[in-house]
Amino acid sequence: SEEEIREAFRVFDKDGNGYISAADLRHVMTNLGEKLTDEEVDEMIREADIDGDGQVNYEDFVQMMTA
């Protein structure tokens, strides 16, 4: 549901600035027990970053979650 997606976005957007940065993503993945290299984190950001601004905004996140 849209509310679940919004809630998930809030979990990833640690600093609440409306964007998921590589640092935000790394933090959440580490908490989930996933040890990722910087390259892996950057690749995840690139794949999710639809508009190419280097971070994942809510619209990018929705597209990723509903793809």
Rank of each mutant, 00 (worst) to 15 (best):
S1N: 08
S1V: 08
S1H: 12
S1G: 07
E2S: 08
E2G: 06
E2R: 07
E2W: 15
E2K: 10
E3F: 09
E3M: 10
E3K: 09
E3V: 09
E3A: 11
E4W: 12
E4P: 03
E4Y: 09
E4N: 07
I5S: 01
I5D: 00
I5G: 00
I5L: 11
I5A: 03
I5F: 07
I5W: 14
I5P: 00
I5C: 04
R6Q: 03
R6M: 08
R6W: 06
E7I: 04
E7N: 08
E7T: 05
E7M: 07
E7P: 01
A8I: 05
A8C: 05
A8F: 05
A8D: 01
A8M: 09
A8H: 09
F9H: 00
F9T: 01
F9P: 00
R10A: 12
R10Q: 10
R10L: 08
R10M: 10
R10N: 07
V11C: 08
V11N: 11
V11L: 10
V11Y: 08
V11M: 12
F12V: 04
F12Y: 10
F12M: 08
F12N: 02
D13K: 00
D13Q: 01
D13A: 01
D13L: 02
K14Q: 10
K14M: 08
D15E: 13
D15C: 05
D15G: 07
D15F: 07
G16L: 08
G16C: 06
G16K: 06
G16E: 04
G16Y: 04
N17Y: 05
N17V: 06
N17I: 05
N17S: 10
N17H: 06
N17W: 07
N17G: 05
G18Y: 02
G18D: 01
G18T: 01
G18N: 03
Y19G: 01
Y19K: 14
Y19N: 03
Y19S: 04
Y19L: 08
I20D: 00
I20V: 05
I20M: 03
I20E: 00
I20T: 00
I20A: 01
S21W: 04
S21Y: 06
S21M: 06
A22D: 04
A22P: 11
A22S: 06
A22T: 13
A22I: 15
A22M: 13
A23H: 09
A23L: 07
A23G: 09
A23I: 07
A23F: 03
A23K: 11
A23T: 11
A23Q: 14
A23C: 05
A23N: 11
D24I: 05
D24Q: 06
D24F: 03
D24E: 08
D24Y: 03
L25C: 03
L25M: 05
L25R: 00
R26Y: 06
R26W: 06
R26L: 06
R26E: 02
R26S: 03
R26G: 03
R26V: 09
H27T: 14
H27E: 10
H27R: 12
V28M: 03
V28E: 00
V28Y: 02
V28R: 00
V28N: 00
V28H: 01
V28P: 00
V28K: 00
M29C: 03
M29W: 03
M29P: 00
M29L: 15
T30N: 11
T30S: 14
T30E: 13
N31W: 13
N31P: 01
N31T: 13
N31M: 15
N31S: 13
N31R: 14
N31H: 11
N31V: 13
L32F: 10
L32N: 03
L32I: 09
L32P: 00
L32G: 02
L32K: 03
L32H: 04
G33M: 12
G33D: 12
G33P: 06
G33F: 15
G33I: 11
G33C: 15
E34Q: 14
E34R: 15
K35F: 11
K35T: 09
K35L: 10
K35C: 12
L36S: 03
L36E: 02
L36C: 08
L36K: 06
L36Q: 03
L36G: 03
T37P: 06
T37D: 05
T37K: 06
D38F: 07
D38M: 11
D38A: 12
D38G: 07
D38E: 12
D38H: 09
E39L: 10
E39D: 12
E39V: 08
E39K: 12
E39A: 12
E39P: 05
E40F: 10
E40P: 02
E40L: 10
E40M: 13
E40Q: 13
E40R: 12
E40Y: 08
V41A: 04
V41E: 02
V41K: 04
V41S: 02
V41G: 01
D42K: 06
D42P: 01
D42Y: 09
D42Q: 11
E43F: 14
E43W: 15
E43R: 15
E43C: 14
E43S: 14
M44C: 10
M44E: 01
M44I: 10
M44V: 04
M44A: 04
I45R: 03
I45C: 04
I45S: 02
I45G: 01
I45M: 13
R46D: 04
R46Q: 08
R46K: 13
R46A: 09
E47G: 15
E47S: 15
E47W: 15
E47R: 15
E47N: 15
E47T: 14
E47M: 15
A48V: 09
A48D: 02
D49S: 12
D49H: 14
D49M: 13
D49Y: 09
I50F: 06
I50E: 05
I50G: 08
D51V: 08
D51N: 14
G52K: 13
G52E: 12
D53E: 12
D53C: 08
D53A: 10
D53M: 13
G54H: 05
G54I: 03
G54R: 05
G54P: 02
Q55S: 08
Q55R: 13
Q55P: 04
Q55K: 13
Q55G: 05
V56G: 01
V56Y: 08
V56A: 03
V56D: 00
N57I: 05
N57D: 04
N57Y: 15
N57H: 13
N57W: 15
N57T: 08
Y58N: 00
Y58E: 07
E59N: 12
E59P: 02
E59L: 09
E59I: 07
D60I: 15
D60R: 15
D60P: 15
D60L: 15
D60T: 14
D60N: 14
D60A: 14
D60Q: 14
D60K: 15
F61A: 02
F61C: 02
F61H: 01
V62P: 00
V62F: 07
V62C: 02
V62W: 05
Q63W: 05
Q63I: 08
Q63Y: 08
Q63H: 14
Q63V: 07
Q63A: 08
Q63G: 06
Q63R: 15
M64P: 01
M64N: 07
M64E: 04
M64I: 09
M65Y: 04
T66P: 03
T66L: 13
T66W: 03
T66A: 12
T66F: 10
T66E: 04
A67P: 06
A67M: 05
A67N: 13
A67F: 02
